[in-house]
């Protein structure tokens, strides 16, 4: 067994310090070390998006990041999307539109959608579909997911206008 490294990072706004093996991915660190199991493993290969997190403002597959690489970095996971005031508009719209069935891809899809709206607040349907191409969903056919994201974008821009 290998030695462990101490890593400091900011996760969902909180400073954390953890021990990890160099071979542990950020996904393993989140789930097994920090017990933040909201981030899901679907393929462990960068092909499904279930493990997506936002790393320094950039959407990444946490299965393709080593835990030791996040020293000093800031990470947002599904557990950090809602605020103490309540659900994020995306989360609310996913519930209202029934944009989830089994729910396993949902955390990754929501994190991706948040990264999208952070960057492009008014995406077209095509842009949403393009941005989500790395998030596989096997239950919904994406229809209600795309509707929910477009609706959330509308609501958020209406809030900004207010």
């Amino acid at each position: 067994m290998s030695n462990k490294t101490v890593v400091q990072a900011t996760i969902n706004g909180e400073e954390v310090e953890f021990l990890c093996e160099t071979r542990q991915s950020l996904l393993e660190v989140l789930r097994d070390v920090l017990r933040l199991t909201g981030t899901k493993e679907g393929c462990n290969n960068g092909n499904c998006g279930a493990c997506n997190v936002i790393l320094e403002g950039v959407l990444v597959n946490s299965c393709l990041v080593l835990g030791v690489e996040v020293q000093g970095k800031s990470i947002t996971t599904i557990e950090g999307i809602a605020s103490p005031q309540g659900l994020h508009p995306l989360q609310q719209k996913f519930l209202e539109h029934a944009a989830l069935q089994c729910g396993i891809c949902t955390p990754g899809v929501l994190v991706s959608a948040k990264a999208l709206l952070d960057r492009h607040p008014h995406p077209s349907e095509h842009e949403v579909r393009h941005w989500l191409a790395g998030n596989l969903c096997r239950c919904t056919g994406y229809d209600k997911i795309v509707h929910a994201i477009l609706d959330a974008a509308d609501v958020m821009s209406a809030e900004v206008t207010k």
Partner: peptide, 9 residues
């Protein structure tokens, strides 16, 4: 190359 999240890295 990959999807958006791959292009992030």
């Amino acid at each position: 190359i990959g999807g958006v999240q791959i292009q992030g890295r």
